[in-house]
Design a binder for these strands. Structure first.
Lengths: 229, 229
DNA sequence: GCAAAAGTGTTTTGGATACACCCATGA
DNA sequence: TCATGGGTGTATCCAAAACACTTTTGC
């Protein structure tokens, strides 16, 4: 039997889990599908013949949300033959993280995109199309592990941020409360994680906070450990 | 523009990184390709129209190595348009782990399969076809992280094993040496990781070792931490 | 007896935790 | 003055690391 004899070709799609923190909540961008199933869905769509999956993800994210491009990282593949009832589709999910991203402009291809709390999707109070709830769940599980030993949490922050802001990121991603004082020291002692800008900023009330920017590290020598509980 | 207008279809393939420990080395199974490029390669091949990727991976692994089926877990997607010079292929990699797997039988479809040390591939002294060195590297990176907080290391062990054998798995996967005495206590204190069978076994010289089997845990509450160094 | 692996006991150390306390600001 | 978040000091706890030591086997 030739290597090619039973080879099949499949439509390949990308789904984008774009996360941000707005109004003190972890939010995901969703679009209103105008075709059946007429539900909220993650942005995504089919890959063109001559583009990479990353390109397709960038294109779909821009086209369906109207937002500026976001660095995307691959999460996993969904390939169950019946996951899209209309036709077999193989989908690769991508995760993007941004700092306090703005409301998507109206009038884009898939209808207005919106930032909705991730918690509402995870607890099923806001149903999404297809298996997009699972896709979001897997992406967030990936994120929860990633912030332990990478600088991913800072992707939620502005270029310049305070340690209190960074702490809030960890609290929202892990859904825990952290001791502010111990977090402060812990973070400052992770080699290469953050470096002070030398400036200070008034966050709300209280003493002005020192501002920091990303350090050189990408991988954290000393992981930031999520509480056991 | 319709959603379907530029939709393309792609050949989708699976590559299998099957690992075992033999002769005190971490080894990966490779096959001799009989078509160009005539190199050693990971087992793998194209997905059929009506089978899942997992099924395709099982089929290819069995067909090309002649070995018994192995539980496979998905690692990642390789989709660079030029990664196969002949044609664009989207490949999903799978990782399988087995205990001291036997030499593959001869005369299978892709020529004899062999277990070769993973180190030789990683340091480029044994070149593989396509980007299979990267695929192996990524799978091993995944494994190194996985053994920290999952029971994946025990997949390299027989149903019944000694703590010394399990320690050797960690040493080979991480390429470190561990203190046997501290490892012993550490492992015995991870809740649900292992449980004693009540039997003893003579491993080589020295005092007979207690035998253990898998405990109920899948996820380790207390991770087994890789040394910093 | 000797080497080698299994298993136990004990000390030290470094990081996580808990929390008292001071600092600097807005209201 | 008070509330609030920023930041420091410090005692406690616990697990990892280091290592001395005993046990049980093969040679």
């Amino acid at each position: 039997m030739s290597e090619d004899s039973e080879r099949a070709r499949f439509p390949v799609a990308v789904d984008i889990v774009a996360l941000t923190i707005r109004d003190d909540a972890l939010r995901v961008v969703v679009v209103n599908r105008r075709k059946a199933p007429r539900r909220l869905a993650l942005p995504g769509g089919f890959v063109f013949a001559r583009e990479s999956l990353e390109k397709a993800a960038d294109r779909k994210f821009a086209g369906e949300t109207g937002l500026d491009p976001l660095p995307l990282r691959q999460i996993r593949v969904y390939s169950k033959p019946d996951r899209d009832p209309r036709e077999r589709v193989i989908t690769v999910s991508y995760l993007g993280i941004g700092h306090d991203l703005p409301d998507p402009p109206r009038g884009t291809a898939a209808g207005p995109a919106r930032w909705i709390p991730a918690s509402g999707v995870l607890d099923d109070s806001v149903p999404l199309a297809f298996d997009h709830r699972d896709v979001l769940r897997d992406a967030i599980a990936h994120l929860r592990a990633a912030v332990e030993d990478s600088t991913a949490a800072m992707d939620f922050c502005a270029e310049s941020f305070t340690i209190g802001e960074l702490r809030r990121v960890y609290e929202l991603v892990w859904d825990v409360t952290l001791d502010a004082r111990n977090f402060y020291r812990k973070i400052r002692n992770v080699p290469g994680f953050i470096e002070p800008t030398g400036t200070f900023r008034q966050t709300s009330t209280g003493r002005p906070a020192q501002e920091f920017r990303r350090g050189g590290a990408v991988r954290l020598e000393t992981p930031v450990l999520r509480p056991a509980s």
